[in-house]
Design a protein around this nucleic acid. Structure first.
Length: 506
DNA sequence: GAGTTTGAAACT
DNA sequence: CAGTTTCAAACTC
């Protein structure tokens, strides 16, 4: 009867080190049961922490490194991968599991279970965290070789945790998310502010602070990206209460450009700038750390997005004005068009508000993005779900809410009343907007390719044993970013708009 | 400590 | 391969 609840009677046992299963069986067919061995320098190193990388959990901070985990399995008999002990090829020992089959003396069933799992996935028992060929995972200093950063073999698939909670296997193993991951809203990359905040929280050695930091890092920054619109919405009683909040900076969440697009951790992003192009660059100037970033990192900037939005709206209006100009007496149109804020039509007013806000963004630049409240107030009357959206989304919303720009102009320019004219205007607007958007997307794609290529080649170069200076020999930004235009991609309008105050194209 | 949330594993 | 269910750990209250 008392098959469950730890036949080991843990209470009566001295705490023992984890009992590791025969290690040599990793790829071999299940062999005859062996006596459990004392802890060996086994292959499956459970939850190993890369050298010099700080374990995220408070537990790991205060506990002897070899402390075994104690599972609490109830239904799996500890013979499935759900069980951490089993997963790590350890026998349960001192666990609180029920009906445990992962015990000495039950090797037959255990091996059968392992075999079944191996049949499904031969690599199932492979250590999840794979270190690079070098045993030294951390760059010693700026002159070191490219660190072979440990990474998760399978990668995580996190959706909500931002990969900053222990739900995330990568985070739990204290490795950065890599290209193996298919996570959403990932914030577990080098240079991530949220991750930094968490690390600092850990250093504060204050559990509450750590948790608070995690909450802030995750909740405060999960933007209107991926998950929010993901069709994969699991039923959650309080799902909506969680609310997806916009990044407090009101910027488009950078992770929008990272989802499903992880770069290899072992690659070094030339510039670790985040979306805003500030933070990570600063951090890198202090220490040259291994960086995993999307090839598009540092490619799309807030100001560019704002530029694009403004550009599209402007193009739209100009198209309408031009066409109307051709049809009607142009003077009225021009006049009306320049009376900013005078148009009384509701939709138009809304649009102008939006545009005014965007212009505001532009004038402030990315260093001072509008906060979400500000943005909310501007769009609050139309944002019925009160969920803030990225500037791009807002631009699209603006477009949709207007139904047709033509309607605006129908009222603004009474003389343009013919439906045919309106649809002409709409068609022209649509054409221009889509063209502009297409060009912009082309630029982004090209940049991504270039950055990716550059990253990999640079990483390869570094691997060849290079480095003299404290900083990597990455090409100057200007050089790197001039490439798109020299690549035969002509994006006159948008490209122009993508030129920044400092004159550098990004 | 109970209940909820989360994501891996298992299943279909 | 994608969607769903099961499971146990992590997390919240």
């Amino acid at each position: 009867m008392e098959q469950g609840r730890n036949q080991q009677h843990p209470q009566q046992q001295q705490p023992k080190p984890a009992i590791l299963a025969p290690v040599g069986e990793m790829k071999a067919p299940a062999v005859a049961p062996q006596q459990p061995k004392p802890p060996a320098p086994a292959m499956p190193v459970p939850r190993q922490w890369p050298m010099a990388i700080k374990p995220p959990s408070t537990e790991a901070k205060t506990v002897t490194p070899k402390k075994k985990k104690h599972c609490n399995c109830r239904n799996s008999k500890c013979l499935k991968m759900y069980c951490e002990c089993f997963q790590e090829l350890q026998f349960c020992d001192g666990c609180n599991c029920s009906n445990c089959g992962n015990i000495v003396g039950n090797e037959k069933a255990r091996n059968e279970a392992m075999e079944a799992i191996r049949q499904r996935n031969p690599l199932a028992f492979q250590p999840k965290i794979e270190n690079g060929p070098s045993t030294h995972n951390v760059r010693k200093d700026t002159s070191g070789a490219v660190p072979l950063v440990p990474k998760h073999n399978k990668g995580c698939h996190c959706k909500k945790s931002g990969c900053l909670k222990k739900y995330c296997e990568c985070y739990q193993a204290n490795v950065l998310c890599s290209k193996n991951c298919r996570c959403m809203d990932c914030k577990n990359f080098e240079g991530s502010e949220e991750r930094k905040a968490l690390v600092q929280g850990d250093y504060a050695s204050d559990g509450n602070k750590t948790q608070q930091a995690a909450r802030v890092a995750i909740n405060g920054t999960i933007g209107s990206s991926g998950y929010n619109h993901s069709p994969v919405r699991r039923k959650r009683s309080r799902e909506d209460a969680v609310g997806i909040r916009i990044n407090s900076e009101g910027s488009m969440p950078e992770t929008q450009f990272q989802q499903g697009n992880h770069a290899d951790t072992s690659l070094l992003a030339p510039y670790s700038t985040g979306f805003d192009g500030h933070s990570a660059a600063n951090s890198q100037s202090k220490s040259y750390n291994p960086i995993y970033r999307s090839p598009l990192a540092n490619t799309i900037h807030l100001s560019e997005v704002n530029d694009l939005v403004t550009q599209l709206v402007t193009v739209c209006r100009m198209a309408a004005a031009t066409i109307a100009d051709n049809k009607v007496d142009g003077t009225t149109v021009e006049k009306e068009f320049h009376v900013n804020g005078e148009l009384s039509n509701g939709n138009c007013k809304q649009q102008q508000l939006s545009e005014a806000s965007r212009m505001d963004i532009l004038t402030r630049g990315c260093s001072d993005p509008p906060n979400s409240n500000e943005m909310d107030s501007h769009w609050s009357d139309t944002a019925k779900d009160s969920r803030p959206a990225s500037p791009t989304t807002q631009a699209l919303m603006c477009d949709e809410q207007d139904t047709t720009f033509g309607n605006d102009y129908r009222s603004s320019y009474p003389s343009v009343s013919c439906d045919q004219d309106i649809s002409e205007i709409n068609a022209a607007q649509e054409n221009l907007v889509l063209t502009g958007l297409r060009e912009y997307l082309r630029v982004i794609i090209t940049r991504g390719k270039i950055n990716e290529h550059k990253s990999s080649s640079e990483a390869a170069m570094e691997l060849d044993g290079r480095q003299h200076g404290a900083m990597p020999a990455f090409a100057p930004r200007e050089v790197r970013e001039n490439i798109p235009s020299s690549n035969g991609i002509e994006t006159p309008g948008i490209n122009q708009k993508l030129t920044h105050d400092d004159g550098s194209k990004r």
